[in-house]
Design a protein around this nucleic acid. Structure first.
Lengths: 165, 165
DNA sequence: TTTTCATTTGAAATCATTTCAATTTGGATT
DNA sequence: AATCCAAATTGAAATGATTTCAAATGAAAA
């Protein structure tokens, strides 16, 4: 019952990852989302399709995927890891008001690899922080996120932490 | 008993921050370190000078400093926040072996401010991850850090998490 | 001195992440 | 189909950074 199952199986197969039901579902979910979901968002989103799915499996599976370049782990949110199914080089913006993480179109050496100062570069992240367009437009009100440098409120499709009750 | 106290007082004074003994000590410590210490490192490093210093004070004080541009909060280490007393725009490299965070000399728009795609940019971070020069040189052995994507061992001046017992 | 207000403190709570042992699964073999 | 085995999954417990909170302290003003 996983939509688009064929190409997903292929994606895993190419990397020698056994295509279990959970893995296919997780991969489908993370590739389908543009909002850079956190573990708990994926857990919530998958609970209908895979009711028994544990967070432990989510953690280990996403680490597996990241290791094989299927997803990127974003550490821009101080509270929790966010996952990105779009692996082409691009930058990210984190709104400190609503917590949304947005893709940025910006020429930059995110694709840069090789060595710098003798260090072997394996990942490059351009992290921009500030207040997003919607929040600037006065979009929403206040209700402070509990942790991190972020302040005020919600809007959009952010990590659940930033949403109203 | 805080070395270099005068200029530190000035730094705080300019920003209207009351120069308490704790704040002066914390500021001195964070400015003096090149290793991007975590809270626990600062706590450890200050315990002689300020034996009663609580982590709560460290957290709140560093947040205060960050808000006033005296330090930068780095989120490149998945486990804990690291603090940087060097506020000029520059990039960072995180070694996934030993956990060290190193400054990179690299022309890049870390200084970029203003708006992108309508979002107001307040901070820019260039995060590079990989294996540092020392670790590549076969520097140290193995003893896995407990969390994060990082694997193997220690070396250098990393967050205590990555050090041998 | 007394009042007042900000700062500091330590203990407890929160919560993402990791660890771990037990269970389940699915493929291979009989 | 039944059995076996290694890998995958699970849930519960542990870990540890960070936050919350109320009480204690300190320092300046009245």
């Amino acid at each position: 019952m996983i939509s688009n199952e064929k190409p997903l199986r292929a994606l895993l197969g190419e990397r020698g990852i056994k295509p279990t039901y959970q893995r296919l579902a997780i991969l489908a979910e993370v590739l389908d989302r543009r909002s850079h979901p956190a573990i708990k968002d994926l857990h919530f989103g998958l609970k209908t399709k895979v009711p028994t799915l544990s967070k432990t499996t989510l953690y280990s599976t996403l680490e597996l995927f990241a290791r094989h370049g299927l997803v990127r782990t974003l550490r821009i949110d101080p509270v929790e890891a966010r996952y990105d199914g779009w692996t082409a080089p691009h930058h990210h913006f984190h709104c400190e008001r609503c917590g949304a993480i947005l893709d940025l179109n910006l020429a930059c050496p995110t694709g840069r690899r090789g060595c710098i100062d003798g260090h072997e570069i394996r990942e490059v992240h351009g992290y921009f922080r500030g207040v997003c367009r919607s929040c600037l437009a006065g979009a929403a009100s206040s209700a402070s996120p509990k942790r991190g440098a972020a302040r005020a409120a919600l809007v959009k499709h952010p990590s659940r932490r930033y949403q109203h009750a």
